[in-house]
C-alpha cells in the first residue's frame, strides 16, 4: 500500500516526531509507514488522516486491490 504521509506531513510543516506525538505512536512507526514497510491499523490510519487534515482514502492508496474490489461489487450487482 502506498501512502502520502510524507508528502502531506512535509506540506503541513511537521517533523516525523511531531506527527508521531500527535497520533501517539513512536517516530519509527511514522518512518516505516512513509517507507511503505508498515501498514497502519485502521484506528491509526484515521488518526493520521485527522492529524494531516485529510481523509483516509486520500492518504493511503492500495497498490492493486482497489480495482478488484470495484470489479467484485459490479459483478454482484449484475448477478
Amino acid at each position: 500500500m502506498r501512502s502520502r504521509v510524507r508528502e502531506l506531513r512535509s506540506a503541513a510543516g511537521l517533523t516525523q516526531a511531531d506527527l508521531a506525538a500527535r497520533v501517539a505512536v513512536s517516530r519509527r512507526t511514522i518512518i516505516s509507514i512513509e517507507q511503505g514497510r508498515f501498514d497502519p491499523s485502521l484506528p491509526l490510519a484515521f488518526r493520521l488522516a485527522r492529524a494531516l487534515g485529510t481523509r483516509v482514502d486520500e492518504l493511503f492508496i492500495p497498490d492493486d486491490d482497489g480495482d478488484q474490489a470495484v470489479d467484485v461489487r459490479s459483478d454482484e450487482g449484475v448477478a
Partner: peptide, 13 residues
C-alpha cells in the same frame, strides 16, 4: 506507557 509500547506502534506489532 511509552510510544513504542502503544498498540499501533510498529515495535509493538
Amino acid at each position: 506507557s511509552s510510544p513504542e509500547a502503544a498498540e499501533d506502534s510498529v515495535e509493538r506489532r
